[in-house]
Design a protein around this nucleic acid. Structure first.
Length: 189
DNA sequence: CACGGGATCGTCT
DNA sequence: GACGATCCCGTGT
């Protein structure tokens, strides 16, 4: 919860095949097992897929949604506690040409990375990278605090696509940088 | 601009 | 064997 807000404004960096891409995190969602019915680890459900969420924080959980989209999460809690923060949108900062190529887009538009599936694709993140460390010296994915950053207000709302989750569906656990045009359009905010 | 549907496949029952 | 923590494009207004 706190971490999902602290991640706003931070830089998410990937370095695959010598291609450096950087995006400022502008939108996140918190998922907190065991009580959160929207979490894949609800009730501490432990499967081959979810097990990286139970490991100590500092690495990532990436999974495939709707057979098409790779969704990137930061695992945030201590050993045995399955908390994660979904990165829903980034503002491109560096490596824009690479991101456009990955997205197969001719020119820069806000839909380059507004939405969890597209922003993962822009950064080159796939399930193949699930479980990788964000903190190792050799990490290919990591998070940095930008040297300079504009102050911003945090906006919150309910999460997207979790209507099935009963009472958990109404938790205001979606956070974004107010007024940032790279935030996804889902459910207005 | 709002809505509707199709794409597409790993994961769990 | 069903179903998503989604996106995009088509249609109609």
């Amino acid at each position: 919860m706190q971490i999902s807000q602290e991640l706003l404004g931070k830089h998410l960096v990937t370095n695959f095949d010598g291609q450096l891409t950087v995006g400022k995190i502008v939108e996140t969602e918190a998922y907190r097992a065991p009580e959160d019915k929207a979490s894949h680890a609800y009730g501490n459900r432990l499967t081959p897929r979810t097990k990286v969420m139970f490991e100590p924080g500092g690495h990532c959980y990436i999974y495939l949604c709707y057979g098409i989209h790779h969704l990137f999460n930061v695992v945030t809690a201590s050993d045995g506690i399955a908390h994660a923060v979904l990165i829903r949108a980034i503002e491109p900062v560096w490596g824009i040409e690479t991101m456009l190529q990955r997205r197969n887009m001719p020119q820069l538009k806000t839909n380059l990375s507004a939405g969890p599936g597209t922003c993962s694709q822009a950064l080159g993140l796939t399930t193949a990278s699930s479980g990788l460390s964000l903190t190792d010296d050799t990490a290919m994915i990591w998070i940095e605090t930008p040297v300079v950053s504009e102050p911003f207000q945090i906006q919150s709302g309910t999460r997207v696509g979790v209507a099935y989750a009963e009472e958990s569906a109404f938790l205001p656990w979606r956070f974004s940088i107010a007024g940032n045009k790279w935030v996804s359009k889902a459910k207005g905010l």
